[in-house]
């Protein structure tokens, strides 16, 4: 291979890693809920969409349910007329996600205790459609621009530094670099929380054995709320990153579809698995497109992740880091 091509492949790999970080973020939300409650949360993608919509709405001072109010009362409301600073809007959205977690626990989960996993899964499908509709009704269905002041565009620093060192300037999106740092920060915080805090310890206990957790005084309902709040917060972070990249619109909820192969790869119960799985899929996707795409007509990114995940399923059904599933007989 020509050195130039090698460098280009390296650049593609780096870009793949950055894209993978996004996948990891979404997969992380899934893993958190699955570990603690055994629920496969179909609504995780919509949670990210809902968070992003709420963030944009709050930031721009949009009046929630404006369309509904206007239709009912014949008024013509749109905005409060203020703009909130990005950080304030993010904090408020995080609170909204906590409120949402409390509502989900009270209205849905509480009534489905001890139901089969498939029932809970169905409930999250319902939840996904409901949240999608709620997001539309609250904030409108138009495509929105999300701008919380994250840097955009190709990083000139990376380009000039790599150019000086390697004689080849890498094109790396600034937003991707930020996303990587945010993801590292988030995972570190989550790890510290789960290892060293009282609530984190309770969370791990519940993930391990419900009965035992109850017997040491842990309220399962509190843990559900906690874990859905954290998943909501992770969804918010994912929503901000994806929204900043490609706008806030329905398709944002489809990022969940990318998380599925990540989970199959990394295992449904492993946080490191979600991260490594996301990175593998991100890199694999980009490299495959780079090497094989031109030969087989391109657009491989749509399906490559699934094929990779299926291959994994055949050889290692529990995923890279997942616990081995042994049926008791």
């Amino acid at each position: 291979m020509m050195p130039d091509q090698l460098l280009y492949a390296l650049e593609v790999t780096l870009n793949g890693l950055m894209a993978g970080v996004m996948y990891s973020l979404v997969a992380l939300g899934f893993v958190l809920i699955f570990k603690a409650s055994g629920i496969f949360n179909y609504a995780q993608g919509v949670l990210a969409l809902f968070a992003a919509l709420t963030l944009v709405g709050l930031q721009n001072g949009q009046i929630p349910f404006a369309h509904l109010i206007n239709a009912a009362l014949g008024t013509n409301l749109h905005h409060f007329g203020w703009k909130l600073p990005a950080l304030v809007a993010i904090a408020l959205t995080a609170l909204v996600m906590v409120g949402l977690a409390i509502l989900i626990e009270k209205l849905v989960l509480k009534h489905l205790v001890n139901q089969a996993p498939i029932i809970l899964f169905m409930a999250t499908i319902g939840l996904a459609y409901f949240l999608e509709g709620l997001g539309d009704v609250m904030w409108g269905a138009d495509i929105k621009k999300l701008d919380v002041g994250l840097p955009q565009g190709i990083s000139e620093t990376v380009e000039s530094v790599t150019d000086a060192w390697l004689g080849y300037g890498f094109f790396i999106d600034r937003l991707d670099i930020v996303a990587t740092f945010v993801a590292i920060l988030l995972v570190t915080a989550l790890t510290l929380f789960s290892q060293y805090s009282k609530q984190g310890r309770a969370l791990r206990a519940v993930a391990d054995d419900h009965q035992a957790a109850l017997s040491v005084g842990i309220s399962l309902r509190f843990i559900w709320v906690l874990v859905w709040s954290i998943a909501g917060f992770v969804a918010l972070v994912a929503g901000i990153m994806w929204g900043a990249k490609s706008g806030v619109q329905f398709s944002l909820s489809l990022i969940a579809l990318k998380a599925l192969p990540v989970l199959m790869l990394g295992g449904f119960t492993s946080i490191p698995g979600a991260i490594v799985g996301g990175l593998i899929i991100g890199v694999g996707e980009k490299l495959f497109e780079f090497f094989a795409g031109p030969m087989i007509g391109g657009a491989t990114e749509n399906w490559f992740a699934y094929v990779l995940a299926l291959l994994f399923l055949v050889f290692r059904p529990q995923g890279l880091f997942g616990e081995k599933i042994i049926e008791r007989v």
Binding site: R204, A205, A207, D208, D209, Q211, A212, A213, S215
Partner: peptide, 8 residues
């Protein structure tokens, strides 16, 4: 039937 946190 023993209920411990096996992973810990």
């Amino acid at each position: 039937n023993i209920a411990l946190f096996d992973g810990m």
